[in-house]
Design a binder for these strands. Structure first.
Lengths: 195, 195
DNA sequence: AGAAAAGGTTAACACTGTTAAGTTACGTTT
DNA sequence: AAACGTAACTTAACAGTGTTAACCTTTTCT
């Protein structure tokens, strides 16, 4: 395996095992049996390394969402499954999910904007699904892109509360998730009476 | 003014002006015309200092929410106003809002849990409002505490997308906010036909 | 006045990201 | 085969970080 990939994998392992705050160039390097400076031969700096990792994570999240799409579902069922997939991914890959949202454009101005556009593209997928589905279920989709973003933002909020350990201990996590999903889905449904 | 308060204010200013990443004990100290070690006479460590700041921010957020409560509103109107207040606070105090959610319990195990319970208590306020309001508007409130949390989580998601600069540039921020609020509120309304 | 405590300092430790300069090894061209 | 170029890697260093120990000075209390 090339050192570049070795570094990426070691960083990911370190991230998963010890968390974001415990990561340092020297620790990564030592676990790859290399000096810290060697990392700079393959990555511009620490942010570049992390961004590369982010891109990978985005890709797997995107794939998971893609795999959960099935044209046989109705829109509400499809949205429900997307929501579950999204939340499951986040809870099963907390450190990866975290760095996706941790790194902020303005804090790394050196980087080309298209990298961040990449990060966003995962949500276009949701927009596509809303746009392409048949609208027979009294759904609000005046602007599918905006709807996709509100959908995603609400999912992110749910995940965020759990990952940041801000959920009240009296509330079971699964109950919170289920109820949140129901609220979110219902937000998309018109108040018109169903046929 | 006591040095303790001086430090708090200087830290807050630094935070607002230069952001989270640019904060260091020495920079804070120098702006207060003091040595870095002096800070440790008033705060256990950097996390303690930031936690104290968080508590202050929570207090003002809580106050803003409290001030927006008016028993003359119906529940949906009240929720809408709470949502607007919450989002406005976050967008007007981005750095303060950020540190509220940035510091994670597991990353500072030295701290007593009740400090984090304090952080959470702002959302009990929302729970109270849902619980105390009359339920004549076909609202889902089987468990007001859970409802409050889903409400807050969704708001946090909306704010988070904006503050993390993850909103698509094609979408106007105000449109996003308005539509998100509508979705969130609608999530609380039963599908029953209104009278 | 003398003791105790509070408020402040300097110097140091063990880290951090990052860079400049130097070394080694390998593949290509002549 | 010899020379060159370059890629991969290292050592040493810089400037910065949070934090602690030891020390000094000023205020407060008895």
């Amino acid at each position: 395996m090339s050192l570049r990939n070795e570094i990426l994998q070691v960083t990911k392992e370190l991230l998963i095992k010890e968390g974001f705050s415990k990561i340092s160039m020297r620790r990564i390097a030592s676990r790859a049996n290399v000096t810290a400076t060697s990392i700079y031969l393959h990555f511009k700096n620490k942010d570049d390394l992390l961004l590369t990792l982010i891109e990978e994570s985005i890709k797997t999240l995107k794939q998971a969402l893609q795999d959960s799409v099935n044209s046989e579902y109705g829109l509400t069922d499809q949205l429900r499954i997307l929501a579950e997939t999204y939340i499951n991914y986040a809870l099963n890959h907390p450190q990866e999910y975290e760095i996706i949202y941790m790194v902020r454009p303005e804090e790394m101005p050196k980087y080309p904007k298209d990298k961040f556009r990449d990060v966003r593209s995962a949500y276009e997928l949701i927009a596509d699904i809303i746009r392409e589905s048949d609208h027979h279920e009294y759904i609000e989709v005046e602007d599918s892109l905006i709807s996709a973003y509100t959908f995603w933002a609400q999912l992110h909020g749910v995940v965020s509360v759990i990952l940041n350990r801000r959920l009240d201990t009296r509330i079971p996590q699964s109950t919170f998730i289920d109820q949140s999903i129901e609220h979110i889905i219902r937000g998309f449904i018109n108040q018109k009476t169903p046929a």
